[in-house]
Design a protein around this nucleic acid. Structure first.
Lengths: 177, 177
DNA sequence: TATGATATGTCAGCATGACTGACTTGTTCG
DNA sequence: CGAACAAGTCAGTCATGCTGACATATCATA
């Protein structure tokens, strides 16, 4: 396997090293573009049967993963505006996939939960993505799982990593990991 | 490092294994969502200064990587309709970032090239993405480059992998690899 | 050479999912 | 009591995808 150049390489082979690095980075750009496009293609096809879009998938996904989260939490995770979220959230509630419960300690807050129907839809949407991930992990070699996770995590900015950390903590508490 | 379960695992530890797999896949779903979002955030900020969007970036990227490609090639790579492409392509041509040359062997075809200005913009857009990739590869360990590429490649469907293969062949020929 | 196929360009209209800005309602807390 | 906060809503804009229809120039071939 080829050795990747480090950022501090220099000397007579400097130009050649820069060329290799450039080719790798440009290749990665394309891989990420195509991979993300095909990763979302499976769920998108299911969603269109319900008249939903990718935004609905994201809401279903995060409410599934973080039961009881508030609208404000969701806005922060998704990085969209309240008005953008309101539309898709209302459609999901009207369709019976999500229900809201008033927080008993602070009655201003609405906790979001998936209904049974919502859980079923969320599972159906995840299925094609999990198949892809399973295939891809197998192709990469499952022993590289941690490296792949480290790669993707470092692509996420500081705020996003913090949000994911909070999500993991919440899941551990609520699922008794 | 933990071993990933295979799809054929069974027996008394089956439930535990399925739980580990489920957690990994759900984690990957989120990582891909956040990583792609932040990966596109850098270029998006630059593009908005020009009144361009992500679609313009994709066109600039592929014309840079595949100089002389035709409109039909671009449609196939991007997987969008002629009408959708026409809008952004026209804006890029009008703004002087892309120029068209009639193919001398088949005067129906228009070959697409970046102008110097287009090359500069394409390079500026790639810079933040390359920084992220460099950081991420370093965090993952550069020795895992091939595994990460294998992972991403296998996420892409058959057609997409063929398109990328054609792109690589073309680049090798035109850059004398 | 006439005809059909191909590559490109264009018009008109539609849907989704982002955005900004302004405002209301209900609730909490100092 | 009043400010701050969580959520909901109205009105309008923009980017980027889509369908369908049609025009033009060029090529290939019967």
């Amino acid at each position: 396997m080829a050795q990747a150049p480090s950022a501090t390489d220099s000397g007579s082979a400097g130009t050649r090293v820069a060329t290799v690095r450039t080719a790798r980075y440009a290749n990665m750009q394309e891989l990420l573009f195509f991979a993300y496009r095909d990763f979302t293609a499976g769920p998108d096809a299911i969603l269109s049967e319900y008249g939903f879009g990718r935004a609905h998938h994201r809401v279903l996904h995060f409410v599934h993963r973080w039961p009881g989260l508030t609208v404000a939490d969701l806005l922060e995770i998704l990085g969209i505006t309240k008005q953008s979220l309101a539309r898709v959230l209302k459609q999901l509630i009207d369709a019976g996939h999500i229900e809201q419960k008033t927080n008993v300690r602070d009655r201003r807050q609405r906790e979001l939960y998936l209904t049974d129907e919502g859980e079923n839809l969320a599972a159906a949407l995840s299925a094609p993505q999990w198949r892809l991930i399973e295939q891809a992990l197998h192709a990469a070699g499952t022993e590289h799982y941690d490296a792949i996770v480290a790669f993707l995590r470092r692509m996420i900015d500081e705020d996003g990593r913090l949000a994911m950390g909070a999500l993991e903590d919440h899941r551990r508490r609520s699922e008794g990991d």
